[in-house]
């Protein structure tokens, strides 16, 4: 399982008020996996755009998720949601990457 690295910064972006910022970095095995993960989770629009903005960037084999929100609470909700999605992505990758030609066995 990839290790999740947290980095918190506080910036003074008063005009936007999205001054609570957290970046999550998730390393994948390959560059392709990181970009697949990005594409899978970035397709969904962020609700409440005036309260939170989320940016997903695949850099090499690392997926960077940048959250900027108006409060700790909205950041927490967004991160929790994002990690839930990434869990599904990672599990899907783990089971199916490189298995396109595999005939899965029953009860495995």
């Amino acid at each position: 399982m990839p290790i999740i690295l947290l980095k918190t910064e506080h910036l003074l972006l008063r005009q936007m008020a999205l001054d609570h910022i957290v970046t999550i970095q998730i390393p994948f095995e390959t560059e392709k996996q990181a970009s697949i993960a990005r594409n899978s989770i970035a397709a969904d629009p962020v609700l409440k755009k005036n309260e939170i903005s989320v940016e997903f960037i695949a850099e090499g084999n690392v997926l960077q998720c940048k959250f900027a929100g108006v409060s700790d609470r909205v950041i927490r909700v967004a991160i929790s949601n994002c990690i839930d999605n990434i869990k599904t992505v990672i599990e899907t990758i783990e089971e199916f990457d490189g298995q396109k030609d595999t005939l899965f066995k029953k009860d495995s």
Partner: peptide
């Protein structure tokens, strides 16, 4: 309900492919 689906989705996909005897390709 979403949590239930997340917990099961990969296993159920695998089972459906296995039952069908079909590969991704």
């Amino acid at each position: 309900t979403a949590r239930h689906h997340r917990n099961w989705v990969v296993r159920i996909i695998k089972r459906a492919l296995a039952d069908a005897g079909v590969a991704g390709a």
